[in-house]
């Protein structure tokens, strides 16, 4: 559903919003105040507004350029107009943020850096930031992948063999109840180097839920589906791979979604406590040096990086469950 897909006015207003934000950046003078005695502050933060202005101008230019193009692409047009109000609100927020921080100093550094500081910082240190993103992503993907493989493996054992259920399920339940982060001190002491310990924590975080959902998905297979395969000449192994596991697939992906959320949580927490690289570590490190603009920059980058990871998982899910398209809404 589209919100006001016909309204050109809001689109124009949105473009104007960026113009206004730009004007504020150019023409409102920065009123740098003196700090009260004893107040924590740092003059060591970037205040060059060039990048901020470039971003504002770029958005406005792109929007203007897209407008004539949208005449040829009806869906694009609807989408653009649909987002217009939101984009306008974004422009206003940026403007307000800029005003309250870099301009009027109502919200003060170092805890409240303006968009100017954050945007000045990110490009100048992109390589450093990227290395942290890489460290986090590597850990996350490795941990989730191992956790998923282990989870599916034990899930199949539990869901298919009574004996395995008897022995494995209580263990699984134990690790499911105890949050993965509780293992952190033990893991960091016993497992070296640090990435191994973190991977272990991520596996713990994702293993239980995926295993549980896998077993549950298999156990809820309707009897008729087994009986059909039986009357078609299927053996037990065929039923496992062509009836029980496919039936569990939607359930597995529910497990993976939950595991993803838990893993991200564990990842950032673990990085903050016992790592020498990664976005979590970087946030913690920046905090100790009172460089709060770096903290905000890291959060923004985290949002982008994790969104990409989630989108990739969603794509895989949609491919694997394409037979469900239209079956469930």
């Amino acid at each position: 559903m589209f919100w006001k897909p016909q309204s050109r006015v809001w689109y124009a207003v949105a473009v104007a919003g960026f113009g206004i934000a730009l004007a504020v950046s150019f023409f409102v003078p920065a009123n740098i105040p003196g700090f009260a005695p004893g107040e924590i502050h740092s003059i060591d933060y970037p205040i060059d507004p060039t990048n901020y202005r470039i971003v504002l101008a770029a958005v406005a230019v792109v929007m203007v350029a897209l407008y004539p193009l949208s005449y040829f692409f009806p869906t694009l047009r609807k989408r653009l107009f649909h987002k217009a109000q939101f984009v306008f609100a974004g422009a206003l927020t940026l403007m307000l943020w800029d005003l309250l921080t870099s301009k009027l100093f109502v919200l003060r550094p170092p805890y409240f850096p303006g968009p100017v500081s954050i945007l000045a910082y990110i490009p100048s240190n992109w390589f450093n930031l990227l290395s942290h993103v890489g460290a986090s992503s590597r850990l996350f993907i490795g941990g989730l992948l191992l956790g998923t493989i282990a989870g599916i493996g034990t899930g199949i054992l539990i869901g298919w063999f009574r004996q395995w259920f008897y022995w494995l399920f209580p263990i699984l339940k134990f690790t499911g109840v105890v949050p993965a982060t509780a293992w952190m001190p033990i893991a960091t002491v016993l497992l070296k180097p640090a990435p191994v310990a973190m991977t272990f924590l991520l596996v713990i975080a994702s293993w239980f839920i995926i295993s549980f959902m896998m077993a549950q998905g298999m156990e809820s297979t309707p009897k008729a589906l087994y009986e059909v395969s039986e009357t078609l000449g299927a053996k037990r192994s065929y039923q496992l791979f062509h009836v029980a596991i496919p039936h569990a697939l939607p359930s597995i992906f529910t497990g993976i979604s939950t595991a993803t959320a838990m893993s991200l949580l564990t990842l950032v927490a673990a990085e903050m406590m016992g790592a020498t690289a990664g976005l979590g570590y970087f946030i913690n490190y920046s905090k100790t040096f009172n460089k709060w603009y770096q903290v905000y920059a890291a959060i923004i980058i985290m949002f982008i990086a994790f969104s990409i990871i989630l989108a990739v998982i969603e794509r895989i899910k949609q491919y694997a469950l394409r037979w469900q398209k239209g079956l469930v809404s």
């Binding site: 309707p222 008729a224 589906l225 009986e227 059909v228 395969s229 039986e230 009357t231 078609l232 000449g233 299927a234 053996k235 065929y238 062509h242 009836v243 496919p246 039936h247 697939l249 037979w323 469900q324 079956l327």
Partner: peptide
Amino acid sequence: SSYERGYVFQQGALYPWSTVEGNIATGLKA
């Protein structure tokens, strides 16, 4: 049960994750 006695269930009991072709081929694959 044996494949020599085919059975058609009341609600069809088709495999929702398998295509028409895949469902029909089940017996041969099994």
